[in-house]
Nucleic acid binder design. Sequence first.
DNA 1: TCATATT
Length: 454
Amino acid sequence: MAESTTNNNNDSGGGGGGGESVKLFVGQVPKHMTEVELITMFKEFSLVDEVNIIKDKTTRTSRGCCFLICPSREEADKAVNACHNKRTLPGASSPLQVKYADGELERLEHKLFVGMLPKNVSDAEVSALFSNYGKIKDLQILRGSQQTSKGCAFLKYETKEQAVSALEAINGKHKMEGSSVPLVVKWADTEKERQARRAQKAQSQASGVPNTDLAQQPSLFGALPMGHIPLYNGYGYQAPGTYGLMQYPLPQMQNQPGFQNMVPPVNRGSAIRGLSPDLAPGLRPRGFSPANYMRSGYPSIPGLQYPMSYPGGVINQGSHNSSHATSPTANNNLAASSNIITSSGAQTEGPPGANLFIYHIPQEFGDPELANAFQTFGRVLSAKVFVDKATGVSKCFGKKNWIYQPYYLLRAGFVSYDSPVAAQSAINVMNGYQLGGKKLKVQLKRDNKQSKPY
DNA sequence: TCATATT
């Protein structure tokens, strides 16, 4: 005797048979029909796990459509083939519409997005890594005009389990060779999400007055199950409006009695000192330029080894204009600057007007050096150097092959302060300052989150 | 010339 009244053969979760439940959208459903009636009807054509009538939010009445959950793709296809445009239910004006629900096809592809790939990564490297978790059906590294990767890829696995295990094992944990940041692994966007992303991008680029008001995008929230918290926010975004971080408790501590005396005065007044004329680039000691020392070896922390060479490092010199600045101070500064970048790699943004965009940063500068160079003017929340996409590589002709090699690493970066005053001080002193053969351009970072209605 | 990219 076969199953007669069992409608919950729930083997999809247990992994028996490898079936994966599939959600279908059904249109042209008479509003008076119940879920039980619909289940009964569809069971003539396929196995059915569940039917959910889609109801009006307020009136709770049927909207004339439903979701139909089938235990496998095969069963779902049976329902589609038997019903779509083939049968008209009593009271309906047109035949049933039965199709895969939005995002369902993509979901069934077990497709992952991989971010934070090195620019020069090869298919073989990515393939080797991800093959540890299952059979790769498809791999596509996104590449730009040259061979260089755009830092991300798409990847399909044979089964959901394989994709999940890769996601959990690699996301945020695995660093590729030569990369300092871990890979990001997420489920690829569905078609709808792609469109939403495109629209949002177009809007923010067109107007320059981006809409970051969450209240104006209610659909995204309505789509999330109640209580759902995304497992991983791949981009580390903060909710708009939550400026700053709690990771730097120092400002509060500095205001407490007893702490002030522990901080050398030169340090605490640094933002103001940065504005003082005697530190201005044009008035710095002659006969010593950053370009000079760069030719004769590459100091990792120029601000410390060549204290007179640029304004950011000037507080470290004990000689000519600040007798109370001592070398322990310099060490403190170094320690502070290396703490600026969090271990998670998350970049922190300061309040509006407190973030700088800096161009023509010397090659020798990494994040810590950049932070060090700019900390004289205020509390640096974050400093980030990156290579300019357009000019980071040049192509050369070889006898047989194209050779892509870096020739002049044009670098830019961001520095975020906790106050606009500090940022302005840094601009006043550092903009146009010659460092490493090029003049720094220091300006306020474009701020796309600026305008926000109340 | 504006960071973490989306087929």
